[in-house]
Amino acid sequence: MAQPLPSPAQLEPLLGRRLIVVTGKGGTGKTTVSAALALGAAARGLRVCLVETGRDEEIPRLFGEAEPPVGHAGRQLRCGPTVMKMEPYAALAEYLRLQLRIPGLVTRLLDQPGFHALLDAAPGWRELITLGKVWHLLQPPPSSDEHIDLLIVDAPATGHGLTFLDVPSVVVSAVRTGPLQRHAGWVEEMVKDPERTLLLPVTLPEELPVRETLELLARARDDVGIAIDRIVINATEPEPVPSELLDLPERLAALPSSPDGLPSPATLAHCVRHRLERAALHRDAINELRKGTDLPFVLLPNLDVDGGGRGVLEKLASTLLESGEPLP
């Protein structure tokens, strides 16, 4: 009964989609993965727009192009992708202007202190307007040089990340009629269309991120209906010790003394043991994830110690997109 799992190389190419929503628990490196994916896609000739949804702009810094800030208007970086920082208030103003076509009215509305109080308390509008803006960016633009082939969203951390994606369907059910209901319906359709949209979960080979990823998979399937076709496991490390040398920590600890210039036998043993134990922990976590899902895994190496920068992103991009990513 056990069919061989598809390897990432046999998968639909990532770059065939219009929208990739990158999500994961805080600290899993989803922003780095989003940036790497955007860089790789741009290097393959796609017009890529990368959308940040966090509180601060992080991505331009990852590319070493932090100044000036990209802001809500966005800016094409020298390395290729266009990056924008989603500002829900700005997106809302754009939306209202499109809907109402009476600029004075929109300004008056937005200037009402009561309107802000209402918005601050209203759940979900930030998420909805963010997804609405994403939808809008993916519509055919008036001139073809503004066309976006691939839009990547660096989504809020999971837990809150999925709430982000359920909002359109919540609105469709809570709001009974009118343009808002219709527009939320379009956004919902986009989120649920497996041809256009993919949710890309990023996790770490550790217990808690793995558990959260399994919960994410269940909710993405049952509550949101968004397609997931692979899981990115970030910061994996090669086996640190050959199988014949698994007793190396004990052997080091048993040395009467270290060669001159090396740390003490106990410290040498501690360091090797630490690496072995971490590797075992990672293995267990990956096995746990394997038990919970048949989806293929894309393993990214731990390049954290390399100091970051474009080089790291390029390496990650080639692993993410390697084999089977045809040029468009």
């Binding site: 209202l96 809907q99 109402l100 009215l105 929109v106 008056r108 509305l109 009402q112 309107f115 809570a174 709001v175 009974r176 009629t177 009118g178 343009p179 808002l180 209901q181």
Partner: peptide, 13 residues
């Protein structure tokens, strides 16, 4: 103000 919100959100909301 309400005309604006209603035009977008629909009355039921």
């Amino acid at each position: 103000l309400f005309r604006v919100i209603e035009r977008i959100s629909g009355m039921g909301f």
